[in-house]
Design a protein around this nucleic acid. Structure first.
Length: 492
RNA sequence: GUCUCCUUCGUCUAGUGGUUAGGACACCGGGUUUUCAUCCCGGCAACAGGGGUUCGAGCCCCCUAGGAGAUGCCA
C-alpha cells in the first residue's frame, strides 16, 4: 500500500505538545513506510483563525526538522491544501447529500439550540444533542423558509437504527449504535463553511489518505465519519487513535500544567532533539531497553504496533533530563551557537559578539556543558566571565570556621599567588591549594569557597582554577581585591 | 445524564499462559570530586478490586470501581 497520512491542524493557536506528537507520529509512520506526509490546514472556523498560528505551524516544523511532502508551502497533486480554498467542494458535496436525502436543511436558531441544550442538561436527559426538529420538514416548508430569507445549515441525517463500526489499528474494532452517534451534526454552516466532519472526510478521501492517526478524543466522531463516507459511497481509511497526553493530574494536558506550546519550550532552551525524543515516547515505545532516538532513526524505526492504548502523563522532569543529555552530546561549535542567544538576551554578550567574547564562550564550553539542563541557564553558569560587577552578599565570602579577617587573609594569599596559579599547570595550582590548606591547618573549602565567591559570585560554579584562568589575571586580581575590600578592615 | 475509551512501580514503559515482573525518569543512599553538576554503584517502588477459564494467570472471559474523552454553526 502506498501510505499517505496527514497532519491537519487548525490555525487557531500555537502548536502544542499534543498536536506536535500527532504530527510526528504521522510523519514517522509515513517515512518508515516510504509513504507521503501531507500537511493540510483546517481553517474552517473563520472566527478563530489567526495568521500567526499558521506561521507557527511552519516554524514548528522547521525547528523540529520535519518537512511535509505535500502542503500549502510546497504544493502537491491533491491541492489546494488549505480548506478555505476548497469551499466549493464542500458546498457541492453537502448539497449532493441533501438531494440524496442523506442530509437536510435546518433553520433552528442558535438561541433555540441553546435552550434545547440547557433543558436537556437540566432534565439529565439520556439523549443530549440536537433534537432533530428540522429533520422531517416538508419541501414546501423548506422552500417557504428560504423564501423568507431564513438562514440555514445543513445537517447529516444520522441513521436512527443499526450500528456503525470502524477498525482501528490500536483499538481493534470500534462499534457504536447509530442511536448513540451525535444526532445529526451540522456539516455545512450558515456562513457556507463546512464543519470539521464534512471537510475532513471529503479531503481525506480526495487526498487519498490511507491512514488517519489522530488523538483519542476523536473516537466518538469515528462512527460519524464512517457514516459520512458511506453516504458518499466511499471507503473509509484505516484509523489509528493515539492515546491522549495528560497533565500530572490526569486531565488533558493544558497550560495549567506548565508550558505546552513549542515556542515556549524553544524559548526556554529546549533542544528539538530532546523534544522529539521525549515526545515520541509518549504513547509509543520501541522495546524494553532503548530510549534514545534521533529524528532520523525514528524515520525508519517507527512502527505502528508500538502504539499504546492508555493515556500518557507528560513528565517535565524527564524532558529536562533528555535535554541535559542532548546538550552534553552537542559539539563545541553547536553548543556555542545554541547558547549564544541566551547570552545576548541577558545582555552579557553583544549582539554581534566580539572576537574575545567568542573566544571566552568557546573556552567556557567544557565547563558549561555538563552543568546545563536548559540552554537558557548559560547566563547563570558562565555569566561571571562577562560581567563587570559581581553581585553577592559579603557574608557569602566567609566560610564556616573563619572570621572576616581570616577570610581576607586567605583572599590576599590567593591574590598574591595568582601568577603561579595562572602560569603553572592546573595540577600545580590545585596542589598549591592543598598544600596551603594543610600548612595553615585549614580545610580546602575554607580557601576555595571565598575565592569561588570572589571570582564567580556564587557558591555553585564551574571549577575554580579553570574559572580563574578563563577570567584572566587582571579581572581575577581585581575581584579578589574587591572581595577583600568588602570584608572588615584590618584591626577591626 | 448518556455514550465511548482506558487501568503494570509516583511518571514513561517492557511483558503477549510458566519471569526473582525488566528498563528509564523522579526520589533516597553511597562513590569520584575544590562547590554545583557530570559520571559510576546501590536502594525504594507496580500487575485497581472481585469472580471465573486453566495444572498454571499481569497476559483470556465477566463484573465492580476508578480515570479520561465526547456529547458545539470548535477542531
Amino acid at each position: 500500500m502506498n501510505v499517505r497520512v496527514r497532519y491537519a491542524p487548525s490555525p487557531t493557536g500555537l502548536q502544542h505538545i499534543g498536536g506536535v506528537r500527532t504530527a510526528l507520529f504521522n510523519y514517522f509512520f509515513a517515512k518508515s513506510q516510504g509513504g507521503r506526509f501531507i500537511l493540510r490546514i483546517e481553517d474552517t472556523d473563520q472566527t478563530r483563525f489567526s495568521p500567526e498560528s499558521l506561521q507557527d505551524i511552519y516554524d514548528t516544523f522547521d525547528w523540529l526538522g520535519i518537512r511535509e511532502d505535500e502542503g500549502p508551502r510546497n504544493g502537491g497533486d491533491f491541492g489546494p491544501y488549505i480548506q478555505s480554498e476548497r469551499l466549493e467542494k464542500y458546498r457541492i458535496a453537502a448539497e449532493h447529500l441533501v438531494k440524496e436525502g442523506q442530509a437536510y436543511h435546518c433553520f433552528c436558531s442558535p438561541e433555540r439550540l441553546e435552550t434545547v441544550r440547557q433543558e436537556q442538561v437540566k432534565a439529565k436527559s439520556s439523549n443530549q444533542g440536537y433534537d432533530r426538529a428540522c429533520r422531517n420538514l416538508s419541501p414546501d416548508e423548506i422552500e417557504k423558509k428560504h423564501a423568507q430569507g431564513m438562514s440555514s445549515v445543513i445537517r447529516l441525517k444520522v441513521p436512527l437504527e443499526g450500528e456503525t463500526s470502524f477498525s482501528d489499528v490500536v483499538l481493534g474494532t470500534v462499534v457504536r449504535k447509530n442511536s448513540d452517534v451525535n444526532p445529526d451534526p451540522v456539516i455545512l454552516k450558515s456562513d457556507g463553511y463546512p464543519t470539521y466532519h464534512l471537510a475532513n472526510v471529503i479531503d481525506d478521501h480526495e487526498m487519498a489518505i490511507t491512514h488517519i492517526m489522530r488523538a483519542q478524543e476523536w473516537i466518538p466522531s469515528g462512527p460519524l465519519h464512517v457514516i459520512l463516507y458511506k453516504a458518499f459511497g466511499w471507503t473509509p481509511p484505516i484509523y489509528a487513535h493515539l492515546p491522549m497526553v495528560m497533565g500530572s493530574d490526569g486531565q488533558k494536558l493544558s497550560k495549567r500544567h506548565g508550558s505546552t506550546s513549542l515556542v515556549d519550550f524553544r524559548k526556554q532552551g529546549y533542544l528539538p532533539e530532546a523534544i522529539i525524543n521525549y515526545i515520541s515516547l509518549l504513547g509509543w515505545s520501541f522495546d524494553s531497553e532503548r530510549e534514545f532516538f534521533s529524528r532520523q532513526e525514528l524515520e525508519t524505526l517507527f512502527y505502528i504496533e508500538g502504539l499504546q492504548k492508555s493515556p500518557a502523563v507528560f513528565d517535565y522532569k524527564k524532558l529536562r533530563w533528555f535535554n541535559g543529555h542532548y546538550i552534553r552530546n552537542l559539539t563545541d561549535s553547536m553548543l556555542s551557537v545554541a547558547i549564544l542567544p541566551s547570552l545576548v538576551d541577558s545582555g552579557l554578550v553583544s549582539s554581534t559578539p566580539s572576537k574575545s567574547e567568542v573566544e571566552i564562550i568557546e573556552q567556557s564550553l567544557p565547563l558549561a556543558r555538563e552543568r546545563l539542563v536548559l540552554l537558557n541557564e548559560a547566563p547563570e553558569v558562565i555569566g561571571f566571565l562577562f560581567k563587570e560587577e559581581l553581585d553577592y552578599e559579603t557574608s557569602a565570602l566567609v566560610p564556616k570556621g573563619l572570621n572576616e579577617q581570616q577570610t581576607r587573609e586567605v583572599l590576599g594569599k590567593i591574590a598574591n599567588e595568582i601568577d603561579n596559579l595562572l602560569n603553572g599547570s592546573p595540577e600545580d595550582a590545585e596542589a598549591w591549594f592543598h598544600e596551603t590548606a594543610e600548612k595553615e591547618g585549614r580545610k580546602l573549602g575554607q580557601l576555595m569557597m571565598p575565592a569561588r565567591i570572589a571570582i564567580t559570585g556564587t557558591k555553585a560554579s564551574p571549577p575554580l582554577i579553570p574559572s580563574i584562568r578563563l577570567l584572566g589575571r587582571e579581572k581575577s586580581v581585581t575581584r579578589l581585591e574587591q572581595a577583600q575590600a568588602k570584608l572588615a578592615p584590618i584591626g577591626d
